[in-house]
Simulated assay, not measured.
Amino acid sequence: MDGFAVIAEPSRRRIVDQLRVGARDVAGLVDTLGLSQSLVSKHLRVLREAGVVTVEVAGRRRVYRLSDEPLPDVLAWVEPYHRRWSQAFDSLADALDADRRQREKP
């Protein structure tokens, strides 16, 4: 499954958002998201198979965390836009700095 299909599902995006804050077990995700345990487990399986999350067994718990470099196809698609917008913001910052310096001249 490609990265876009993985994050197309809103519940999976919510899980990823929660894991961005820190590692969680299934019970913690169920409580936070208000979804059933079976639905959370289903989405975690999809995320794990896509390489978005990793799982560690800690006793009877399975603790999930974000992978270091998930969704390479999504990142590759977004990167040119990010670069363009960053350049535009840098240009805006330069223009504002130049304007501020011009107004500060005696």
Rank of each mutant, 00 (worst) to 15 (best):
F89G: 00
P72R: 02
R84C: 03
A50S: 03
E104M: 12
V40N: 05
S86G: 14
V30P: 11
D68S: 10
L35A: 11
A95P: 02
W85H: 08
S38F: 13
P106S: 12
V26P: 05
A8Q: 14
E79T: 13
R101E: 12
V21E: 13
V46D: 06
L29C: 09
R61F: 07
E56P: 02
R45Q: 12
A98H: 04
W77V: 12
V26C: 12
V57Q: 10
L29Y: 06
P106W: 12
D97F: 04
R60A: 11
R61N: 10
G3C: 07
Y64C: 03
Q37F: 07
G28Q: 11
D25H: 08
R48S: 06
Q37Y: 09
A76I: 04
T54H: 07
K105S: 08
S36D: 15
P10Q: 07
H43I: 09
R61P: 03
T32H: 11
L66M: 05
S11Q: 14
F89M: 14
A88V: 11
S67G: 08
V74K: 02
R24F: 02
D68A: 12
E79K: 12
T32Y: 04
L19T: 06
R100T: 09
R13V: 11
I7G: 05
Q87W: 00
R103V: 06
R13F: 07
R45E: 10
V53G: 01
L92F: 00
V40L: 08
D25A: 06
R101T: 01
L44K: 07
P72S: 02
R62F: 08
Y81T: 11
E104F: 06
T54W: 00
I15P: 09
V26H: 07
H43G: 10
E9I: 14
P10S: 06
E104R: 15
G59A: 05
I15S: 07
S41P: 09
V21P: 03
W85F: 11
D99Y: 04
E104W: 09
S36E: 15
R62M: 10
S11T: 15
E56S: 05
S91N: 08
F89T: 04
S91V: 00
D90G: 01
A95Q: 04
